[in-house]
Nucleic acid binder design. Structure first.
Lengths: 137, 137
DNA sequence: TCGTCCCTTTGGACCAAGTCTAAATCCCAT
DNA sequence: ATGGGATTTAGACTTGGTCCAAAGGGACGA
């Protein structure tokens, strides 16, 4: 599905600015901050303003095309993966990886006295890219 | 153990400013931001500077008396609980609660291809203060 | 074609969290 | 008492983010 249709589907009035922002963040596959998106978008649309990028990202979150996540110090990051999932943060690079929901299982969430759990996820830290398939260490 | 001895034990040269900061954050039982600590400490020590509060908090983290956590948008919070534990965030109040490590169990952390997990914890969101709740997720 | 209305974009002011720096102060050993 | 290293201070600076008033742009009726 192309980005233009995605926006229309959610009732977002498409504009060149919004399309450019959505292209960058939805296709990125990573977890950019707003200013990182700003920088990337400016390559194509040099006159776009910071306010528009922030407005658009917040609009995309509001309309369910993005999630914002609190995973980096000092800044929110945007995640084009809107399914439930977990996160892994590489300690060396700071890079954030998505882990599929099915990769982990958390038990005990229903047995917490005094807490009504609405959502949860696991945040893991370590090193990514070390072990290889079929190799033991 | 009093705070003065705690600092000495960790090789931290005690000063009135450091003691005041440590008292506030170690006894608070909550998860204050640096500026919240700054505000509280100024009640007792009106001339203390922001830089000293930030320096001291970072020093306490470095020396293992505190942990810093990324749980609130825009600011780091400090956690006097240095044991492994999970977190629950009340969506209405933003208040952060510690959950004992034993309250939850996460399985699958060892089976992740390509990720060497060094640490992890569960972040939950919902409403606190409602006893008697039995729901799975 | 021309207005006009409404939505969007823009630039800059503003705010909050946090770091940095240079100067002042403190403490301690000589 | 004095000199030096550690600590504190105020304020400048940086960065992430919001706010606002003015300008732009497109759809539609006259």
């Amino acid at each position: 599905m192309d980005v233009l249709s995605l926006l229309r589907e959610r009732g977002i009035q498409p504009t060149p600015q919004r399309l450019a922002v959505a292209e960058v963040v939805l296709r990125s596959g990573v977890h950019p901050s707003a200013d990182e998106v700003f920088a990337r978008v400016r390559d194509d649309l040099p006159t776009i303003s910071r306010a528009t990028v922030y407005n658009t990202l917040n609009l995309l979150v509001e309309k369910g095309l993005l999630m914002s996540q609190i995973l980096r110090e000092g800044t929110v990051v945007f995640d084009p993966n809107v399914q439930r999932h977990h996160h892994f943060i590489d300690e060396r690079t700071g890079r954030i990886y998505d882990l599929p929901w099915s990769a982990l299982r958390v038990s005990g969430t229903g047995a917490l006295e005094g807490f009504e759990v609405r959502d949860y996820h696991v945040v893991m830290k370590g090193r990514a890219g070390k072990p290889r398939n079929n190799k033991r260490s």
